[in-house]
Design a protein around this nucleic acid. Structure first.
Length: 564
RNA sequence: CGGGGAUUGGCGCAGUUGGCUAGCGCGCGCGCUUUGGGAGCGCGAGGUCGCCGGUUCGAGUCCGGCAUCCCCGACCA
């Protein structure tokens, strides 16, 4: 392709709004252009990369017997109602209504569609297992789009759905896990398989494929043994503090302090870990209050809390609710004598983190303004309704905290959807109807592209790994000398004939501009034809990653690139 | 959803206490010169200053509302 004809230009000036390298570079180099927040145009160069990633994903999916299909983007809302996902949050579902007032969800994921498709067929156990996948636009009304292609509101996702017996499932899950590792390493990313939370997708366990990057949003922890767990699920084992101490009598004291934990530490001159932290939530899905109680030096992990409290739509309780409905005081909440029913009749659940078992004679609020309790002890002074691990993990003792970009995930769904959706059954060898056991597997293509740029770039531009570079070779002709140009044209033709993907910079611009663009666009190889190179006997060859250039004959270069 | 910042040619920005025809750099077009790390000179095109309303003789500038975009937070009581 001739660069003079490529739609989408590089830009010398970089925008001021780009905080993330991949966002800036992809924009500056003419791969993407923003439409509105979180919605992007893919320009021809970007589209090429996108397609190459797509091809790699497709090849690996097919290798494990998955079959490509296409599903409608508009999902009948009834399907989402069948699985109750119109009411649960997670991502905001986008909806659209047609002229007959029929409601549709704009697909953000397609479990219901896949199940609905499958249940239209009468399937025998002999046909199991099968795994269907698609590449399609996904719509998510994200609270906040961020970082260019890293978090968007519309994106192409490869989503796969496996249908099998329970016994067959493990192998499919393993196959997909292997496929994913292979896919990501082929595009140039090292990923870690991280145990994660199933969230709104449902099911019991799942893994995210995360590639380490400071630009990423996922925090996870890797233990000494190499086990990786997302912060949402990473277990916390709090060390014992002062459990050998003798239990002292509980007493209420005056506490003229502010509302923060630090205020408490300062006032009583006691360690943070001895203070009790109380966080009050209200759950909109079950209309109950949830009081999370935890050791002062830990934070509450809302995801863990959600599961333990069976509360799917938690929000912070308001000061008004704390005061008027629960008779307590913001900043001075205490699990001691905390009501189990609010004035307005709502249920209250008190959930204690197991870290509270590691301390004795704790201190904290007294449900009254400027009053604190000293020597609070679990069991004796308060009894939680539920006890468990609701702590946000922190790095320490053998675990390392990492941050990265989640480029793919695999979910065990089990019977979650086939239980909720009628008729999602096959016939077993005894002629009986059985529910499918399911899994689903997703990869964000655009995000993968951005993750690659995050990893492969320098101060001059992108450095595409060969497997997904939009072209292999950047061929530049320098000057306007007639003979040189003719040679370049001829050589461009030769390269094309050999099947080398080449971007021919045939513009009449100065060398500096061509070199700068070559670096910015980041193709793996740069080839220059100029008076100088011809005098030295051929063409100049340089890798994007190297500073050195070498002179090769035209034939020599073609031989060198032939298998690229 | 809360807080902060922003919105002026394609991009990056300037525009003072309200005042004349809204500027600059890059980019774009034409011409000449130039051609190994984003060239020089000349000519030129391109803007209802985000939108709506208000104040005023006069608004890019002041006031009110809305929209869009960016950043931080969305829980530590």
């Amino acid at each position: 392709m001739r660069y003079s004809k490529v739609f989408g230009k590089t830009s010398k000036t970089e925008g001021s709004d780009y905080k993330i390298d991949s966002h800036r570079l992809l924009t500056q180099a003419g791969f993407i252009r923003e439409s509105t927040a979180g919605r992007y145009y893919l320009l021809p160069l970007g589209q090429k990369v996108h397609e190459k990633i797509t091809d790699i994903v497709r090849r690996h999916m097919d290798k494990y017997g998955a079959q490509e299909v296409s599903m409608p983007v508009l999902h009948p809302i009834e399907l989402w109602q069948e699985t109750n996902r119109t009411s649960t949050t997670g991502f905001e579902l986008m909806k659209i209504t047609d002229r007959r007032e029929a409601e549709f969800a704009l697909g953000g994921t397609a479990e219901e569609m896949a199940v609905d498709l499958v249940r239209k067929f009468n399937i025998s156990y002999k046909n199991l297992p099968f795994n269907i996948y698609q590449f399609s636009m996904k719509f998510r009304d994200e609270l906040r789009a961020r970082g260019g292609l890293l978090r968007v509101r519309e994106f192409i996702m490869k989503d796969a759905y496996s249908f099998s017996t329970k016994e067959q499932f493990e192998k499919i899950y393993e196959d997909m896990s292997r496929a994913y590792s292979d896919i990501f390493s082929e595009v140039g990313l090292e990923t870690e398989k991280v145990r994660a939370d199933n969230g709104y997708i449902g099911g019991e366990y799942c893994h995210e494929f995360i590639c380490q990057s400071e630009a990423g949003e996922s925090r996870y922890f890797v233990s000494k043994s190499g086990e990786a767990a997302h912060e949402d699920v990473a277990e916390v084992h709090a060390e014992l503090k002062n459990t050998d101490d003798k239990e002292e009598d509980i007493k209420e004291v005056k506490a003229e302090r502010g509302k923060t934990m630090e205020d408490g530490v300062k006032l009583h001159d006691l360690p943070l870990w001895l203070q009790i932290k109380d966080v009050l939530y209200f759950d909109e899905s079950t209309k109950k209050y949830v009081l999370a109680v935890i050791r002062g030096d830990y934070d509450v992990n809302e995801t863990k809390l959600m599961h333990l409290a069976e509360a799917w739509d938690l929000r912070a309780a308001t000061d008004k609710e704390i005061k008027d409905d629960l008779n307590s005081e913001p900043g001075f909440i205490s699990p001691v004598d905390f009501p189990r029913k609010s004035k307005s009749g709502k249920k209250v659940v008190v959930i204690a983190d197991k870290s509270l078992r590691t301390i004795k004679n704790a201190y904290g609020g007294a449900n009254k303004k400027h009053r604190d309790l000293m020597n609070i002890n679990i069991d004796r002074d308060y009894k939680p309704d539920i006890e468990g691990d609701i702590a946000l993990a922190v790095a320490g003792e053998g675990t390392v905290e990492k941050r990265g970009i989640e480029v793919g995930n695999i979910f065990q769904l089990g019977y979650h959807y086939t239980d909720l959706m009628k008729g999602a059954e096959y016939t077993d060898e005894n002629g009986k109807k059985q529910k499918y056991y399911m899994g689903c597997y997703g990869i964000g293509i655009g995000r993968t592209m951005a993750a690659v740029v995050e990893k492969y770039h320098d101060d001059k531009g992108i450095i595409w790994p060969e497997n997904i570079a939009p072209f292999k070779v950047y061929l530049a002709v320098l000057g306007t000398d007639k003979e040189v140009c003719e040679q370049a044209e001829k050589f461009y033709g030769e390269l094309q004939k050999t099947g080398v993907e080449v971007l021919f910079d045939d513009r009449d611009v100065r060398p500096g501009e061509k070199f700068a663009d070559a670096d910015l666009i980041g193709l793996p190889y740069r080839v220059v034809i100029s008076e100088k190179s011809l005098k030295s006997g051929g063409v100049e060859f340089k890798k994007r990653t190297s500073k050195e250039t070498e002179i090769l004959s035209q034939e020599g270069l073609i031989a060198r690139l032939k298998n690229k």
